[in-house]
Amino acid sequence: MEARARPPHLLPLLLLLCGECARVCGCNETRMLERLPVCGKAFADMMHKVDVWKWCNLSEFIVYYESFTNCTEVETNIVGCYWPNPLAQGFITGIHRQFFANCTVDRPHWEDPPDEVLIPLIAVPVLLTVAMAGLVVWRSKRTDQLL
């Protein structure tokens, strides 16, 4: 569909709806940074419905987070920018710091066992493998004597 075939007062709307703004006017980073806080405020309002102690449980607010992500993508695309981009990611990171700074992943800290334990755990299987291989070779040389 060619934009010239439409009435001139609909041209900006058509460009916006067709996603052609990026090709026509480029990314308006200033406008994007003005629009993204709307998404942040909506997310904050939704997150305040969730108990603070549940903020680290993704299943408690996944719908709100999806809405926030979609909002940032739409607002970024409206001003002709691609999503994600470094500025949008910086904004999203700021929201993460605001709501999820106290969330930690409780992962066990793995470390090697002491040498007194590690050496036997390595040496015993190696020695057993050598002994079994030697036993098989020794036994295979004696098969003619047993028959």
Rank of each mutant, 00 (worst) to 15 (best):
44 A>I: 00
128 L>C: 13
27 C>P: 08
113 P>K: 05
35 R>I: 05
73 E>D: 12
137 V>E: 07
26 G>I: 01
132 M>D: 00
28 N>K: 07
78 I>D: 08
53 W>N: 15
110 W>T: 06
132 M>Y: 10
128 L>I: 04
125 P>R: 01
28 N>F: 06
43 F>W: 01
32 M>E: 11
63 V>E: 14
66 E>Q: 11
43 F>Y: 13
24 V>H: 08
87 L>G: 01
121 L>D: 01
113 P>A: 07
110 W>L: 14
97 R>V: 03
42 A>I: 05
51 D>F: 08
45 D>L: 00
54 K>W: 09
105 V>N: 09
48 H>R: 14
123 A>Y: 02
29 E>H: 11
46 M>N: 10
69 T>V: 09
113 P>W: 00
112 D>R: 13
80 G>T: 02
63 V>H: 09
109 H>F: 04
37 P>F: 05
30 T>A: 11
102 N>R: 12
69 T>K: 11
102 N>K: 13
35 R>V: 09
59 S>C: 02
48 H>V: 07
89 Q>G: 12
30 T>P: 03
27 C>L: 02
124 V>D: 01
23 R>Q: 15
127 L>G: 01
107 R>Y: 09
121 L>R: 05
77 N>C: 07
140 S>D: 02
91 F>E: 07
52 V>L: 15
73 E>G: 11
117 V>S: 10
52 V>C: 09
120 P>I: 08
128 L>S: 09
71 C>K: 00
20 E>N: 07
108 P>F: 02
133 A>T: 03
50 V>P: 07
84 P>L: 00
123 A>S: 07
94 G>H: 10
73 E>W: 04
18 C>T: 10
100 F>G: 03
125 P>M: 03
86 P>G: 12
111 E>R: 12
54 K>S: 15
132 M>N: 01
36 L>S: 03
66 E>R: 13
74 V>I: 15
83 W>C: 11
23 R>I: 13
100 F>M: 10
57 N>K: 12
91 F>A: 12
62 I>Y: 04
111 E>P: 04
136 V>T: 01
36 L>I: 02
33 L>Y: 05
117 V>I: 15
44 A>G: 07
65 Y>M: 11
